[in-house]
């Protein structure tokens, strides 16, 4: 079995379809930690598999439903995973394993809990890594600098009005990259605006562009100071100098 010969990345499809034996699974999962694109790809393959499943749908016998319902009523349910409501410090949950890992590994670990919302950032980091991204796509070298900073930390949170936000921040770069998926679509007269909330008040940190295919950003916010929190509000188009509506996301950085 010339295991080493197969490019591990090509196993993503087989992995998503549970078509790896135990040894191959182990090997691929080692790769997965270093392969942010794989995580996003596998999630997409899961959606493909769901359609394959639907296409094979077959009606189970009626009696099965009664048995399953009766059995479920006797089974105790798992409580929600702790820390899943509101902001979570994904990267911070594994402090012991973090220090010696690369930024990509840390992003991939965070991905396990932050999920698909990070696909945008992943795509970007992967491209940055391969030097395949144009200045235009990047918008600024700062984005790459944050994503690849040694002290980069990833946070994720739900937005109160719908959607998920992912943030990669670097204290060293004094900046953060913000991306979101599934944000509620706003009328043209409104926009989302980011804020850095510090001891000296709320500082505008940029307006979010209109979403494309459900994804917003990534955008960069710089000038991060120690103790700042990140906020998000809905403002009149063009933005405001001070928040004029309640925070729909507030994240301790």
């Amino acid at each position: 079995m010339r295991l080493r010969r197969t490019e591990p990345h090509t196993l993503a499809g087989a992995y998503a379809m549970h078509a790896l034996n135990a040894a191959d699974t182990k090997r691929f999962e080692r790769h997965l930690v270093r392969c942010p694109e794989c995580a996003a790809e596998i999630a997409e393959f899961g959606e493909v598999a769901a359609r394959l499943a639907a296409a094979a749908a077959a009606q189970p016998p009626e009696a099965l439903k009664e048995r399953a319902m009766a059995a479920a009523a006797r089974v105790r349910q798992l409580p929600p995973a702790t820390g899943e409501t509101g902001a979570t410090r994904s990267a911070g949950q594994r402090p012991a394993r973090l220090p010696r890992q690369s930024w990509a590994a840390r992003l991939a670990l965070a991905a396990a809990s932050a999920g698909l919302v990070l696909a945008t950032i992943f795509g970007l980091t992967a491209s940055v890594e391969q030097n395949q991204i144009s200045q235009d796509q990047l918008r600024s070298r700062q984005v790459a600098a944050v994503l690849t900073a040694r002290d980069a930390v990833m946070l994720d949170a739900k937005v109160r009005t719908g959607g998920n936000a992912a943030v990669v921040m670097s204290r060293r770069e004094r900046a953060l990259v913000f991306a979101a998926t599934g944000l509620r679509v706003l009328p043209r007269s409104m926009c989302y605006e980011l804020w850095l909330i510090g001891p000296s008040g709320d500082t505008p940190a940029g307006m979010l562009p209109a979403p494309r295919q459900g994804r917003t950003g990534p955008v960069i916010a710089s000038g991060l100071a120690s103790g700042d929190r990140l906020g998000l509000t809905v403002e009149p188009a063009g933005g405001s100098r001070q928040p004029t509506s309640p925070m729909i996301l507030e994240l301790a950085l």
Partner: peptide, 28 residues
Amino acid sequence: TQEVVIEVWRTASRFDRSKGSAMAWVTT
């Protein structure tokens, strides 16, 4: 099939829609 359905009942709180669709979660 019954095991799967009960697993869905038991672990429903762990489903996270930001990670993928509900059907993908169940069929996985």
